[in-house]
Computed example of a mutant assay.
Amino acid sequence: MSRILLPGLIAASLLFSVPASAAGCWLFADGTGQPLSQQGECSQRLPPASTFKIPLALMGYDSGFLVDEQLPALPFKAGDADFLPAWRETTTPSRWMDHSVIWYSQRLTEWLGEARFQQYVDHFDYGNRDLAGNPGKQDGLTQAWLSSSLGISPLEQASFLGKLVSGKLPVAADAVRHTSAIMRQPDIDGWQVYGKTGMGYFKQADGSLDRQRPIGWFVGWASKGDQTRIFVHTVLDKPGKQFASVRAKEELFAALPDKLKQ
């Protein structure tokens, strides 16, 4: 079981529903986010789950809540989400991204407050920009991206990442640099790769989780010299031996070497 993906299993209980025929998306784009190739359903909005840690990191570094890759180191507290043993330890920004520690994200958004959180999401033009949260619960500040209102399509993910890597988001350059650092993946043929997984489930008509319909994300970019390629891959399929997010990442890494040669 990957330590990176599990927020979706506990917290990403999703309110989105799609036709049974819906398929995942393969999307490769240039450094501005303009698609070079796409296959499957790439325009439907899905909950971002842990891929939302990318904009959260940008917010955290730009606002001063996050300092660098190792600070702040925040202690686990009783009552924090603790499904994984890795979540029950003192957490740094790097560890937060690697292990997808839910409570660390929530400390950040609570520190930002509703108004500033919404302002960042609006300025990023991130998906549907809806931070209302679950109906009647007023929990958008800590749950919007996990279990309720916020949605983004693969095409919108590519556009957002294009603005990130081309320096067009309204955040400090250091925020982009530190966010990139904690997203670093293994290099491929001299390309520096950055990415983040996300994992969740669709919901049924009665609002319960449909565990037969998981959602997996892997999104990011690869850079080599003055070249940049953005990738977004979603897996919408029946559950198997791997979590959908693990499958999305592994499938993307298997395809990426050939894509980067094109």
Rank of each mutant, 00 (worst) to 15 (best):
V176M: 01
Q185Y: 11
R184G: 03
W191G: 08
P186G: 12
A175L: 02
Q185V: 04
T197L: 13
R177N: 07
I188S: 03
T197D: 09
A181I: 00
M183P: 07
S166K: 05
K196P: 13
Q192F: 02
A172S: 13
V171K: 09
D187R: 00
K196A: 00
V176R: 06
I188W: 06
V171A: 06
V176L: 08
P170R: 06
D189V: 01
R184A: 15
R184D: 05
R177K: 12
I188H: 03
G200H: 03
S166T: 00
A173W: 07
I188T: 12
T179F: 10
G167Y: 14
T197C: 15
D174T: 14
G200L: 02
I188C: 09
I188D: 09
R177W: 09
R184Y: 04
S180R: 11
G198W: 08
A181R: 05
Q185E: 15
L169M: 03
P170N: 04
Q185N: 12
G200F: 03
P186D: 15
Q185G: 07
M199W: 14
Q192D: 06
G167Q: 13
K168G: 01
L169I: 00
A175F: 09
G167W: 13
S166I: 01
V176G: 03
K196Y: 08
I188G: 12
S166A: 11
G195P: 15
H178M: 08
A173M: 12
I188P: 07
H178S: 00
P186H: 13
D187A: 07
Q192E: 05
T197Y: 11
G200E: 03
Y194P: 04
K196M: 00
G195R: 15
I182H: 11
V176N: 03
D189Q: 10
K168H: 08
T197S: 15
L169R: 06
L169V: 00
K168Q: 14
P170F: 08
G167A: 10
D174R: 04
H178A: 03
T179K: 05
V171C: 06
A172L: 09
L169G: 05
T197F: 11
D189H: 08
G200A: 08
A172C: 06
R177T: 09
K196N: 06
I182E: 04
P186T: 12
M183R: 11
T179Y: 12
T179C: 07
P186M: 03
Q192N: 11
G190S: 09
K168D: 04
G190L: 02
W191D: 02
G195Y: 13
G167N: 11
G200Q: 02
V171W: 10
A181L: 09
M183S: 13
M199A: 05
S180G: 09
V171I: 08
Y194C: 10
K168V: 02
K196I: 06
A172Y: 10
G200W: 03
M199E: 10
G198E: 10
